[in-house]
Amino acid sequence: MEPFEFVRPTDIQDVLVAIRRPGSRILAGGTSLVDLMKLGVEAPSTVVDINALPLSMISVEGDALSIGALASNSDVAVHRAVKQHAPAVGQALLSGASGQIRNAATVGGNLLQRTRCTYFRSRDWPCNKREPGSGCAAIEGVNVGHAVLGISRSCIAVHPSDIAVALLAVDAYVHLASVAGERRIAIGDFYCQPGDTPSVETVIGPNELITKVEIPITNLNATSSYLKLRGRASYEFASASVATAILRDGDIVIDAAVAVGGLGTVPWRNRTAEKLLIGKKLTQESILAFCDALFAPASATPSNTYKLALARGAIHRTLRGGAEW
């Protein structure tokens, strides 16, 4: 690890100035950055520790639930308002990592978590995400855990976040601040598919800081839930995960949101496919039709095609809510 300058501003304006330095990286919980710095994947010249900022509030503000960027995954997961208004978010957080990591990891940091692709996580391999133009070792390599949705010839790395999948299902917004001012982006517009530039992962600018996440308080979001599938029973990234929210009038679906994790280069959702569920009963057939539409663009290798079967199973399981057919 190369030495770096360590700064710890106590004022948000000072942070916003500090992160304008080229080669700076923001340090929040550190669970991602410290790891990647030890691996040599990240080598910032300045580390800007933002833990002195008052950004860990979780509160209801009008018709939205507001979660500060520095709120820990643990605190968010068990917060009453989160459980009430966006249960999928709490469940996603509790399914992620371990108790220790959830205590340290922050919501803002989690949104910017880097892929777990082995080839990304070591400088010994070519990787277009880490080193643009160097190639992708995963496409011809071991890709049992890699993406089947949103892939490109440059990158098939899967997005690792659980919470981002839940936030996508509940139509959250990400608030960003820079010296130029503040802006708000729908989470659905926040992540970039790799295309030819897999090193560009989000629309966040180099000088911007995530300040909070906002979740609309809606009847639909209050029904949300998260199911994560993985090989071992805990402490593993998702093979497939699904965040669903369903509003019904009697048996008829009047609103639906289904986001999928562990399959895409970004958290995955298809609103057009969701329309197939609206106005219908939840039957084996209607869910199958939805899944077919959702996964139509999928492109799997022989070793990761199982993810599609798992995701379909997870969608069936969550939409039907455990009821027997």
Partner: peptide, 25 residues
């Protein structure tokens, strides 16, 4: 343990990618 098919190198030389049972298993 899995080898990269092109480079013949072990790719899961760590405890995140080489899974051993956790308590809940």
């Amino acid at each position: 343990g899995e080898f990269d098919p092109i480079h013949s190198r072990l790719i899961n030389d760590n405890l995140a990618d080489y899974h051993i049972p956790v308590n809940a298993d």
